[in-house]
Amino acid sequence: MKKQHKIILGVLACMMLVAIALMYKLHWFGAGMKPQHEATRNPDRVAEAISDIHQVTLNPKKESPKEAVQIEFPLYGNTIEDFVPGLYKIAMDTKGLLNNDELEDVVLVLQNKTDSTDLRPTLILLKQPEGGYRLYASSLLAIGAAYINGDYQQYDSEDISIDQKRNLIISTYGSGPVGNRETRYRFIDNELVFTYMETFNAGAGQQTRATYDVLNRKVTVEDINTMKEDMPATVSHGTLPQHPLYFFKELDPTTVFSE
């Protein structure tokens, strides 16, 4: 075979290898591509997605949730440490303007020092004009336990914050079936109420994102098919049933919409 023909065949072979590699990459790493959306009003799909999300969020390894045991915290304290019982330590904290005055409030998440699977209290401490803090409310269900069965960490990372619009934001992120969840609360008529939640879960061939606009009773569910190169997405809309305000001190965000 002539040298020129060998060179041409070599170039063609290289081009074929590059094309095969590119097709492989597009198939497995298509998550970076912009999905094509198809909007629809499908309340049945919304209900199905909510059920699926809560099934994996509640019990990613099928353990029974730990029983909530109410803890007595002081109603007033001069410092935030006054609200931390000896058995607990501060796991997370944030400061900001939360209620309707201009005094900087504090939110604490506590951790049992001897039991990593214990439910973690979240305390809302309102700064007082005369100094010190008043305990507005505590919740054992706002964020959940850090570990299950002592060695299984529920979340890869977590965060609490107070934004400039006076929203308390609690975020948890998990790479496994537990997924991601963000809940928001805001003071309305002197009560801290549940206003918004967003969840994200990824499984074999599909990603599902759900947003709950609680105050406006709107639910949006986006399903992304990651098995296809263009990653088509279907967006379904639904309406939450009429319900009185959900209060922070009474709410379990993992079950509030599961019924």
Rank of each mutant, 00 (worst) to 15 (best):
L245Y: 14
T57N: 14
K3T: 13
F29Y: 15
P43Q: 01
M23P: 02
A91K: 13
Q36L: 11
K228F: 03
A91S: 08
Q242H: 05
R41H: 08
D189N: 15
T40S: 12
V46W: 08
I71F: 05
H54A: 14
A233E: 04
G77H: 07
G176D: 12
T211P: 05
G132Q: 15
T255A: 01
V219I: 06
G179V: 03
K34W: 09
K165T: 12
F257H: 07
A13H: 07
D52S: 13
W28Q: 06
K62C: 03
C14K: 03
I71W: 00
E48F: 13
Q111P: 02
C14M: 14
G203T: 09
T57S: 13
N59M: 15
M15T: 13
P60L: 04
S175N: 10
V214E: 01
G205P: 07
Q164V: 10
T79P: 10
C14G: 10
F257Q: 00
S258F: 02
Q164G: 00
M197T: 07
E38G: 05
K34H: 05
K3F: 09
T172I: 11
M23N: 14
T79W: 03
N78P: 02
H237M: 05
I50M: 15
F257V: 02
F187W: 15
S138C: 11
V109R: 00
N42M: 01
F257C: 01
D163R: 02
T239V: 11
Y24D: 07
Q206Y: 09
K62I: 07
F187S: 14
F248N: 11
K6C: 06
K2W: 01
D82L: 06
F29H: 12
A31P: 04
D252H: 08
N216A: 05
H243P: 03
I8L: 07
V56S: 12
I160L: 05
M16N: 05
N59V: 12
L98K: 01
Q55R: 14
P232E: 07
H37G: 08
K127R: 15
L26S: 10
S258C: 00
